[in-house]
Design a protein around this nucleic acid. Structure first.
Lengths: 196, 196
DNA sequence: TAAAAAACATACTAAATGGTATGTTTTATT
DNA sequence: AATAAAACATACCATTTAGTATGTTTTTTA
């Protein structure tokens, strides 16, 4: 990687960490450049302002994570009920990128930036739609395979499941504890099994 | 009401509106006093700092709303499945205090303040616990009445339902649209009916 | 290897922020 | 009505903020 690209990525990664922990508004550029050991000149060479950096975090940090941790697992040729459950299990309990006490980065950004920042809203809505589309596809494939009932509304179920995920992440944040995830996962399993 | 108390309440209500729309961090005291037509002297006479005002919003604005809109409906002597569904229906589609594009105030605060602000976290966790306790009680009563299956875990179901509520509110915010609520409610009904 | 462009560094600025110091006015109490 | 306390008003301040102006260094290209 070129050195400039490395500097840029370094800024984005450290900035993401800070924002994930403290929020976008609360994380100042001064704070970011202090922890990255990068000067203000370098920062504003790579990003024309704070907002552009925030959007770059979504596109260059969150989007790749989405692909590997949220989409790929759904594209396996398996029982979608097992696949969705395992996905949630991994995201909530195993994923090292995501921490219980800081919630879901996409949900955090959504809460902080929408509806007043249109660019953020659009970028976040796109990310979310990629995930929901993949989940809907997985469920519909399960219907074709006869694993999931034909009368199940895949879009409806996806909305229900993703909402639950966002919500339980908020719970984990509130209680600063992963144990709520265990109860949630049990009930998610119960629910998913009713789709058979 | 005494005039001083009216001033205080006016600040809290206007501040809540601004914070509900723009977030706690982004809402400045200057902005609050500008829209309330109250001077800085008055503001800091009633609240020793911004944080105290924020906590007062939780205790004096959100808590009463919780009681009337979130708890009372659950305490009716009825089928808890109907009661919970109707509660969600009212909260998502009828409630005038809550707007789709701004999400759930408690979830918003949680996302923005936890885990780094302990006082906010505690106040918000208390609010949430009041709601979950009421919902658990409603479900357990339904089990005693034979409406809800005995093998249902009331706490687990409550966690699942509340998570879904928080999550769909985030969806509504993201899409800036109430139509997602309709799909969510349909699937919620399906889910709740499996508890019979 | 010289020139040019890219990448970074330093010092600064205007605006906004939470908060204070010091008043004045209003209300309650004797 | 006099006094004291409560309630509010105004002017100010130190700090933080995003962002800029103007450099210097490093890398690429001809």
């Amino acid at each position: 990687m070129k050195k400039a690209a490395a500097t840029r990525l370094n800024i984005l990664q450290k900035a993401f960490e800070l924002i994930y922990i403290n929020g976008y508004q609360t994380t100042s550029i001064d704070h970011i450049i202090a922890t990255t050991q990068v000067t203000k000149g370098a920062f504003f060479y790579h990003f024309k302002n704070k907002e552009e950096m925030g959007l770059a975090i979504i596109n260059e940090i969150l989007k790749p994570t989405l692909a590997t941790s949220f989409l790929e697992p759904l594209q396996k040729e398996q029982d979608p009920i097992v696949v969705i459950y395992n996905l949630m299990y991994d995201l909530l309990l195993k994923n090292e990128f995501l921490k219980a006490e800081y919630g879901c980065p996409v949900a955090n950004f959504t809460q902080e930036m929408t509806p007043w920042n249109i660019d953020f809203s659009k970028a976040l809505a796109e990310l979310t739609q990629e995930w929901t589309k993949a989940m809907i596809a997985a469920i519909e494939k399960g219907q074709q395979n006869g694993i999931v009932r034909k009368d199940v509304n895949a879009m409806q179920v996806t909305l229900f499941v993703v909402s639950g995920y966002w919500g339980i992440r908020n719970f984990g944040k509130l209680e600063n504890n992963k144990t709520v995830y265990l109860s949630y996962l049990k009930e998610l399993k119960n629910y998913l099994n009713t789709l058979k």
